[in-house]
Design a protein around this nucleic acid. Structure first.
Lengths: 150, 150
DNA sequence: CTTTTTGGTAGCATGTTGCAACCGTCGTGA
DNA sequence: TCACGACGGTTGCAACATGCTACCAAAAAG
């Protein structure tokens, strides 16, 4: 169980997000949840993580409101873990990590799993950071205002 | 020093990204780099991380091609850590985490640091996951093809 | 009713982190 | 030019987290 929080009191939203997710295993659990995993055993087989670690991570994610534990959809007495709206809102994070990985860690032609538009079966468009008026922004085009209300 | 890799051999780009970044400290280092930090001491003061941990993380990030060590811009004999193109490509990841944090971990009106368009001073548009033909996609509108060439 | 699967717990060895102390080099002011 | 503080680390150690294996109760399957 994670008791200590490291970044939770930060005024930086990135730090709070990082703290809420917990660790990398948790992020891969969320990825698997997006890919359709729901049951303890599915996550465990998919990730190869130790069961006690998985137990702890699932608990943290449920406590953090990213997943929720619901009765199994097939009518069995077991429970399933599904993404809450807050968890589904992590979609751009997962997509961003996926695209970064595709572009930087695979040789041309090297096979990898691929996220596609269900309707068309095509790859997704690369994420773009846009200004309020729709201009494409690079890192250098932005700056951080240290503190700001709302 | 991180010797063992956990996800590096995965065919999933998300896993490789996660492995390449290393841990949450590394991601916050990258965030600070986007915010203008360059020097060891800047990262250390900003993050409050132990110096040996910071040393190790900076080394990992340099080894992974996310940061590079360059001579200090002010002409001193010290070195600075700056984002490589690969590192700058993490921009959407940081922005996605920031927006998720803003939307889920701050009470309305609670102050937080804010990323703005330098030219206009306005907040950024929320990231959108788009299909190849420009439709806005929710998680349910997508599916993962387990393995695929290029 | 027996066996297998599921979803965990418990204990222990090992790895990683955080803290504090130390240290050589660099910059700076007198 | 020389002393002193800042910078950028390294080292050792204690505490904590992780991963592995064994175990276990409830549920499902047969």
């Amino acid at each position: 169980m994670v008791t200590r929080t490291r970044f939770d009191d930060s005024e930086c939203p990135v730090a709070r997000s990082v703290d809420a997710i917990g660790d990398w295993w948790s992020l891969l659990i969320v990825r698997d949840a997006f890919d359709g995993s729901r049951r303890f055993g599915e996550f465990q087989r998919s990730l190869g993580v130790a069961k006690n670690i998985l137990t702890a991570r699932l608990r943290t994610l449920v406590a953090g409101g990213v997943l929720e534990s619901v009765p199994a959809s097939d009518g069995s007495a077991y429970r399933e873990y599904v993404l809450t709206p807050k968890g589904k809102a992590l979609f751009p994070v997962i997509v961003a990590l996926r695209q970064w990985g595709e572009q930087n860690f695979f040789a041309p032609g090297e096979p990898h799993s691929q996220l596609v538009d269900r309707q068309q079966g095509h790859r997704l468009r690369a994420l773009e950071v846009l200004s309020a008026d729709g201009r494409r922004l690079n890192p250098d085009d932005t700056t951080v205002h240290k503190i700001s209300t709302q």
